Simulated scan of single mutants.
Amino acid sequence: MAAVLDAALSFFRKAEFTIDAEHPGDVVQRERLLDRAMGPGRKRKSSEAIRRGRVPAQGLALVARDLDGHVIGTVRLWHVEAGVGPDGAGIPALLLGPLAVDAAYEGKGIGGALMRAAITEAAARGHGAILLVGDPEYYERFGFFAEKAAHLVMPGPFERRRFLGLELKAGWLTGAAGLLVGTGTRLSHPGIAKVA
């Protein structure tokens, strides 16, 4: 994991949890956590259609672990094209999600720590913007606002007020309009798509 992420998270290593890069052995724990936190309808969301069959952006799949090493939180970011800009070229960005924390650990700052870690690492890796679908009441504290995604649409049903953007580089989403399209690396084994 990048040195920037390690430095930014040194505080959290002293807490009841740590933030770490997701490892292949975390898949089962992560999927069970997501099933509990988001319910059976989670795979029908528009954002899931973008992620399906793809791998997360390099270095941007993070987990929170309890002191015994169990996965108690997760966040992942995915490569997308955020419509096109005024010049007609596609605008590369990231789609954040899902973010989830085990209910037994809610209220301990884990979700916020995962968000800050994801944003810090995405910025350190040179990405220009992050988009997500979520409650503005929660995500605005991290700098996500509906205005940044006002002219973008998801590939399926979504609530306009919950489609939010954060520019990591000033003006990155200026003039962006159109459909969000997944652009990340595809899984090499179709059977793995169910757990990715």
Rank of each mutant, 00 (worst) to 15 (best):
V195G: 11
V84I: 13
A49K: 15
G165M: 03
P24Y: 04
A64Y: 12
A193Q: 12
R160M: 02
L131F: 02
E31H: 12
A82H: 01
L132F: 03
P98Q: 07
V80S: 06
F11L: 10
R162K: 14
R30G: 05
A21C: 12
D87N: 14
R141H: 10
A2Q: 14
A103V: 12
A170P: 10
G182F: 00
R125D: 09
V84A: 13
A146G: 09
L187S: 13
L152S: 02
P98C: 03
I91N: 00
P86S: 15
L114S: 06
R125T: 05
V75E: 02
D35E: 15
D35K: 12
S46F: 01
E16G: 15
L5Q: 10
G112I: 08
E48M: 08
A57C: 11
L95M: 13
K108A: 12
E147I: 02
L33W: 10
M154T: 02
A146W: 02
R65L: 08
V153K: 11
H151E: 14
E159G: 01
A57Y: 02
H127D: 13
E159F: 03
E147Y: 03
G178M: 04
V63Q: 10
I192V: 12
S47G: 15
R162V: 00
M154F: 06
R44A: 14
L34R: 14
A100Q: 08
A150F: 00
A61T: 06
K45D: 11
Q58G: 07
K108H: 14
K148A: 15
A196Q: 14
R13A: 11
H127F: 14
D26R: 10
R76D: 04
P98G: 07
E22N: 08
V4M: 12
L164R: 09
D26H: 15
D135V: 03
V133K: 05
I72L: 10
G178H: 07
I192D: 15
D87I: 04
G88F: 04
G53M: 06
R161L: 06
V84F: 04
G182P: 00
L96M: 15
L33T: 08
A93G: 06
L164I: 06
A123V: 01
P40E: 13
E121N: 14
A61N: 13
A117M: 03
L99H: 05
A177H: 10
G171A: 06
L152I: 00
D102M: 08
G90F: 05
L94S: 05
I130K: 08
P98T: 09
Y138H: 11
P92Y: 11
V133I: 15
R65Q: 07
V75Y: 09
R125W: 01
D26L: 11
A64K: 08
G171K: 08
D6A: 13
P86H: 14
R76V: 01
H23I: 02
M154P: 02
T120A: 14
L168C: 08
E167N: 09
R44I: 10
L34S: 08
L180W: 01
L60W: 05
P56T: 01
H79K: 09
G88V: 07
D20K: 14
F158N: 00
R162I: 00
W78P: 03
A89I: 00
G41Q: 13
G69N: 11
D66L: 06
I50G: 04
A146L: 02
L77K: 06
I130C: 09
R52Q: 09
A150S: 15
P190D: 10
P24S: 09
A49I: 03
R54E: 03
A57I: 05
A193T: 06
P56F: 02
G59C: 07
G109S: 04
